[in-house]
């Protein structure tokens, strides 16, 4: 758990980078710090492992005040991932990943086992990749290594500063999925900086939207999309926030609320989609191809129904617009 208690960061007398920020990252959850550049999100992140000092207030990490801990000890207990992976070119992949365990004085055997386990998590062969150097890996692989390096000493808390920001969209999407998969297994408490709204919606259990060092809203992604607290929040998520919010819902949600269309066996070669696919992707699939409908398949690969643009629109109206108008009335 990471608690920010009235945290303020000042540079000199004039500049306030972070102003009276107060929120908590619950155990095992991902909180995304989101906002335009210069909003203080990276500063806030770096205050947790004391790469930036705290001017006022305090940060409590797992019931310990970060101020009371030795900065070096504190950092070794916190996983840290940065955008440009920060791998050391002079060290092999194994040396890079096992750096913190090495600093902590783990035995050779412990390190070896941990390395093999971590490489399995990201689906790379430990034997093959262990001896390679960072420059011999692709950008996506390097970033994966950057992530498992942060996990190396099994820290309860992780800080991620735009970890996927430098990757191309396709790879980024894949690594985000992969990371969420890993997170389901390791259940770390994660503070994540992003300027990408879609990434925030996808990754976050809760989002902290910042502007000029102040919290505009701290909420779950769906609440933030459906109940923007103020003008800035609704503008930041944009006019298409209803569509954005579709990525929080799956075909399965639609099936339970309004049901799918019947399967028309006479129609051949339509595209199929998995029931766990999110509605935003489904919608773009429907719009990108000529067919009016897409066949939905369950995990057993059976056709269980069809989905059309009309159905998505209907769902959008019921589920999301309904909530939004309710909030405006209330």
């Amino acid at each position: 758990m990471i608690s920010f208690k009235n945290v303020t960061k000042r540079y000199g007398e004039e500049i306030v980078a972070v102003n009276d920020v107060d929120f908590t990252v619950e155990e095992g959850k991902i909180v995304v710090l989101l906002g335009p550049s210069g909003c203080g999100k990276t500063t806030l992140l770096r205050m947790v492992n004391r790469l930036e000092s705290i001017s006022e207030g305090e940060i409590i990490i797992n019931n310990e005040n970060s101020k009371d801990l030795d900065a070096i000890e504190l950092r070794r207990k916190i996983g840290y991932v940065i955008q440009s992976n920060g791998l050391f070119p002079n060290m092999t992949i194994e040396e890079n990943v096992m750096l913190v365990p090495d600093l902590l004085g783990w035995s050779k055997k412990e390190k070896r086992e941990r390395f093999e386990y971590l490489m399995k998590l990201i689906g790379l062969d430990a034997k093959d990749y262990g001896k390679r150097y960072p420059h011999e890996l692709s950008g996506g692989q390097q970033q994966r290594i950057g992530v498992v390096r942060a996990l190396a000493a099994d820290p309860p808390v992780m800080l991620m500063d735009e970890p996927f920001g430098a990757l191309d969209p396709i790879i980024r999407d894949k690594i985000q999925e992969e990371f969420l998969q890993i997170q389901r297994e390791v259940k770390k408490t994660i503070l994540f900086v992003s300027h990408d709204i879609d990434e925030a919606i996808k990754m976050a259990d809760k989002i902290v939207l910042l502007r000029n060092g102040e919290i505009m809203q701290f909420d779950t992604p769906s609440k933030m999309l459906s109940h923007p607290k103020n003008e800035f929040v609704s503008q930041f998520f944009g006019k298409d926030r209803a569509i954005k919010s579709l990525s929080l819902h799956t075909v399965e949600d639609l099936q339970t609320i309004i049901g799918l269309g019947p399967v028309d066996e006479s129609v051949q070669d339509t595209k199929t989609i998995n029931i766990h696919q999110d509605l935003r992707n489904t919608l773009s699939m429907l719009m990108n191809q000529e067919a009016d409908q897409v066949v939905v398949k369950n995990d057993q690969d059976e056709n269980i129904g069809t989905i059309t643009i009309d159905l998505v629109q209907k769902y959008l109206h019921f589920e999301i617009k309904g909530k939004m108008s309710a909030s405006q009335e209330g």
Binding site: N49, R76, Y80
Partner: peptide, 15 residues
């Protein structure tokens, strides 16, 4: 040397 690399080193708790 890339400043980000030094930053990563610091953030990982290297003296």
């Amino acid at each position: 040397i890339d400043k980000n690399m030094i930053d990563a080193a610091k953030g990982m708790g290297m003296k």
